[in-house]
Simulated scan of single mutants.
Amino acid sequence: MTSELKNTDPTEQETASEKKQRYKENVFGIGGCILIAVAIAFAFSFLFNLPTSSEDKQEASAIASYSVGDPIVFSNITYLVESTKVNELKDGASELVINFKVENIGSSPVIITDGMFILIDDKNRQYETELFNSDFPGSINPGLTKEGHVSFEIPIGTSSNYQLAIREDMFDFGGANYKYVEIDI
Rank of each mutant, 00 (worst) to 15 (best):
I72K: 02
V73E: 12
F74S: 06
N76P: 00
N76S: 03
I77F: 00
T78P: 01
Y79M: 03
Y79V: 03
L80Y: 05
V81L: 11
V81I: 15
E82T: 11
S83G: 07
T84F: 04
K85Y: 10
V86G: 01
V86N: 04
N87S: 12
N87A: 10
E88V: 12
K90M: 07
D91S: 13
G92I: 07
G92H: 08
E95C: 08
E95Y: 05
E95L: 15
E95W: 06
L96K: 08
V97T: 12
V97M: 15
I98P: 02
I98V: 15
N99M: 03
N99R: 11
F100D: 05
G106A: 04
G106N: 07
G106Y: 01
S107L: 09
S108I: 09
S108M: 10
P109E: 14
P109H: 02
V110E: 12
I112Q: 12
I112D: 08
I112H: 03
D114K: 13
D114R: 10
G115N: 13
M116V: 02
M116G: 00
F117I: 07
F117T: 06
I120T: 08
K123E: 15
K123W: 06
K123Y: 14
N124I: 01
N124G: 02
R125S: 13
R125P: 00
Y127K: 11
E128T: 10
T129P: 13
E130P: 00
S134I: 02
F136W: 04
F136E: 06
F136V: 02
P137R: 03
P137E: 05
I140A: 05
G143N: 06
L144N: 13
E147M: 09
G148T: 07
H149W: 11
H149P: 01
S151D: 03
S151I: 03
F152R: 06
E153A: 12
E153R: 13
I154W: 06
P155F: 05
